[in-house]
Design a protein around this nucleic acid. Sequence first.
DNA 1: ACAAAAGTGTTTGGAATACACCCATGC
DNA 2: GCATGGGTGTATTCCAAACACTTTTGT
Lengths: 230, 230
Amino acid sequence: MGKYCYEYPRPSLTTDCVIFGFDGLNINILLIQRGGEPFKGKWAFPGGFVDMNESTEEGAKRELFEETGIDNVFIEQLYTFSDVNRDPRGRVISVAYYALVKSSDYNLIAGDDAAKAKWFKLDEVPSLAFDHDMILRVAHSRLKSKIRYQPIGFELLNEKFTMPELQLLYESILGIKFDRRNFSNKIMKTGLLLPLEEKKQGTPYRAPRLYMFDKIKYKELSYNGFNFEI
Amino acid sequence: MGKYCYEYPRPSLTTDCVIFGFDGLNINILLIQRGGEPFKGKWAFPGGFVDMNESTEEGAKRELFEETGIDNVFIEQLYTFSDVNRDPRGRVISVAYYALVKSSDYNLIAGDDAAKAKWFKLDEVPSLAFDHDMILRVAHSRLKSKIRYQPIGFELLNEKFTMPELQLLYESILGIKFDRRNFSNKIMKTGLLLPLEEKKQGTPYRAPRLYMFDKIKYKELSYNGFNFEI
DNA sequence: ACAAAAGTGTTTGGAATACACCCATGC
DNA sequence: GCATGGGTGTATTCCAAACACTTTTGT
């Protein structure tokens, strides 16, 4: 029997991480294949049980690293899923987090429980274990609203990037197309982009100009509670 | 010793409810005074431990009812607070919910643990137990963004209400003043308000016109994923 | 020269803001 | 009649959307 005893029953507490990765062309989702029951062989989000000496956010980061090798990401709390029957093993509630990363920054490793980690294109995600289909829908919808008023996308590109690259990123996340000229105008009006003299090398056709994200301006504006909308 | 034993230690799971109540003039917060340790005598949000056969949302509603007599409200998940040291009794994580109610709809009852429940004006809230000061800040900030693009305010008024009443509601929540004419124009442009022929009786000075929230129009618009912004 | 992508600016419509006058009611 | 709040409309400003031509580069 278990060694940890309580006066009242307690649910288990887990975390799940929805990791969106941009590869320069598409938005991908990071999944791991389950090695054991339940849902053996099915794909699911990385995550696991929370330890007693860590917050759920710390637990989510730890599990993410253990299972996929992904480290040093800013994760943000998404939602807590607590349906009584969401896990066939018993009463398990899960605090879900999400993050955006540049997928080229990480070489996926096999996790410590030999689960395979793999990137899936957003529109090629298979049916997932547990209630993870729902978690994905919630995460994607949150991401879409978030990126319209917070500059969370710049982390996904190289330090120096071109306007078409940035536009492609917004289009992949939002699933819509922008007019090239209006997009550029809107983005520049935020004041958060620093145009460089340099142009991107090695492209076919005309070389596009490079930009950088202006971190100093961002801090300045954040301090005053700024707003923008793409 | 406790009767419920597990292989690994588990944190306790609680809920907290941040209830915003509008009394026609001010936004109030519903608090209960703690009858026992820790934080005995301090004020805190209604809430409590989640049962094994209920979701956190169900648990939050149940505790809210038991402690304050408030029933039949739409609560929305706010955030999950999980800092390791947030509760002196041990490892307790709390899923916080928030809701908006019309305070005149409820006669506050003393809770089953003899705790007193009381409405506090937003700017007269005392220092709270646990991390509830932080929870309140998060809740108020969430409410402010939410009300700008969701018609959550209409529930707080009588079925028939006047434009100045609605404006006062928005102003109390957001803490800003609107121009009377522009406010009315913006609200009417959403198409969600049905002007009635009736006027409000018993007011001093000129009798203001009454409006109703157009639920049918709302469903119609929701279905198409509409947007508005106040 | 031509095909493909990048760069740039103007026009137009609609929404948000600022703003002023008249109306109803109680005292 | 005057003080108080309620009702309404218009001019202006600003932002967003639509839109076309020129430049660069590789073949």
